[in-house]
Design a protein around this nucleic acid. Structure first.
Length: 427
RNA sequence: GGAGAGGUGGCUGAGUGGCCGAAAGCGGCGGUCUUGAAAACCGUUGAGGGUUUGUCCCCUCCCAGGGUUCGAAUCCCUGCCUCUCCGCCA
């Protein structure tokens, strides 16, 4: 959520900034509602004050044994007036809140202008896409030939956009998770955390998936209406919901492996082949709670932490600064890591590292005591994938294939694989 | 699933209709003392919002949402959560 003060005092400038993100504000409706809220609030508080005063004097009179009947008569209709005023105030306030909760975060000034993926700005590249002396296969063909990756069976069990992995491929998938978690906990100072995979609606509202993106979630029909997490960002960030953190506890850095569930509504026909876009996938996620002044430096560090995984796996990638139009709802700035996929002859997103500034913290009331101002202030949240495990597996399969259709195991993963160095039809 | 107890400020914990935004203790902060520190003593210390930018006033908040009442932390209803015992279970 944006600071309501921006809507009150800097409405036009805010609307202007949101254009970069491709969002338009209905400024006249907002201004109207805000004016209404103001007058209703003043009126309501006046009535409340009156009620408090009269209640107090009645109490005093009663304790002195005076006749309170005339006093009671004087406030007879106050209750109804107050009830009415409170009702219209809360009505106006919720109308305002509903709009406010649907306004995306403002983009940081360093975010480039643009409408889509095409306009993202390449920041840097690492590694050189390998030149293959043979016709490369994509991961689907490689996996099928090895007999380790099976989409038909997944479709039978469940439906489209699911996969079944067996044997050494399933093991490699698991090895990746352990490798990533170990790297972030040992080398990058993150605390591993295990969280629920079903969350309530407050949590999804806190990080920004609700109310606007209900259609993207898998909602259960349980009594509580729990939702499957679309990313570990949701449960991890919400661990601190409503908390006030001490300055010396910051930054807090958490890493977690969870499955992620996404309905992929609206992506029909995109990436229908293979494991790139699934309803269920594993992800290792890093989340940090940081002081506002540190958040952009922390975003750079966190992005590097994600890059480290790709570098250790020796997978070529590039970093892009997302343009305004491609930026997510809650993000002020996002770096995407895109890994080279020989099967597609292009770079594909494998991690998304974002600074949300105080946008999520305001929704969740996550605050800290600032020793300098001696005040309680909102902190900043940042997070990033480190990495999307399924896509990393795809990248390994395609980048480490050989002419015989075998897949070599990256050096850093070999000791997680119990000595298996090559995935061929015998493993 | 059955039975019971309970949710109060950073923490512990008192408060069963008005004098309660809330005792007391701990913690935090400031001070006295001290070469410095500790101890002791004194003082201070919740959050959000409105109005105003005048620390002057006002409002809201004692799990959440309703209700009763002139007046609710306190009474009633619903929900959520925690704890104890029994049952069941990975």
């Amino acid at each position: 959520m944006l600071d309501p003060r921006l809507i009150r005092n800097e409405l036009e400038e805010t609307a202007q900034k949101l254009l970069k993100k491709g969002a338009t504000l209905d400024t006249s409706t907002l201004a109207e509602l805000e004016a209404k809220r103001k007058s209703l609030q003043v009126k309501t508080e006046q009535l409340q004050s009156e009620r408090n005063k009269s209640a107090k004097s009645i109490g005093k009179a009663k304790s002195q044994g005076e006749d309170v009947a005339p006093l009671l008569a004087a406030v007879a209709d106050l209750g109804d007036q107050l009830k009415e005023a409170e009702a219209s105030l809360s009505e106006t306030q919720s109308a305002l809140d509903e709009i406010l909760m649907g306004i995306p975060n403002l983009p940081h000034e360093s975010v480039p202008y643009g409408k889509s993926e095409e306009d993202n700005q390449e920041v840097r590249r690492w590694g050189e896409p390998k030149a293959f002396a043979f016709e490369v296969k994509d991961h689907v063909d490689l996996g099928a030939a090895l007999g380790l990756l099976d989409f038909e069976t997944a479709a039978k069990i469940t439906g489209a956009r699911f996969s079944v992995m067996t044997g050494a491929l399933a093991k490699l998938h698991r090895a990746l998770i352990t490798f990533m978690l170990n790297t972030h906990t040992k080398d990058h100072g993150y605390t591993e955390i295990y969280v629920p995979y079903l969350v309530n609606r407050e949590s999804l509202t806190g990080t920004g998936q609700l109310p606007k993106f209900e259609g993207d979630q898998f909602v259960t029909t349980s009594e509580q209406g729990y939702c499957l997490i679309p990313t570990a960002e949701v449960p991890i960030t919400n661990t601190m919901r409503g908390d006030i953190l001490e300055a010396d506890a910051l930054p807090l850095k958490y890493v977690s492996h969870t499955p992620c569930f996404r309905s992929e509504a609206g992506s029909y026909g995109r990436d229908t082949r293979g494991m790139i876009r699934q309803h269920q996938f594993e992800k290792v996620e890093m989340v940090q709670f940081v002081k506002p002044e540190d958040s952009y430096a922390a975003l750079d560090r966190l992005t590097e932490h994600a890059e480290t995984i790709l570098q250790k796996l020796e997978l070529p990638y590039r970093v892009v600064n997302l343009c305004g139009g491609d930026l997510g709802f809650s993000a002020a700035k996002t770096y995407d890591l895109e890994v080279w996929l020989p099967g597609q002859d292009r770079y594909r997103e494998i991690s998304s590292c974002s600074n949300f500034e105080s946008f999520q913290a305001r929704r969740m009331k996550i605050r800290w005591r600032n020793p300098e101002t001696k005040k309680i202030e909102l902190l900043h949240t940042i997070n990033g994938s480190g990495l999307a495990v399924g896509r990393t597996l795809v990248a390994i399969m395609e980048n480490y294939q050989d002419e015989e259709g075998r897949v070599h195991v990256p050096k850093v993963l070999q000791h997680y694989m119990g000595g298996i160095k090559v995935l061929d039809s015998t493993v």
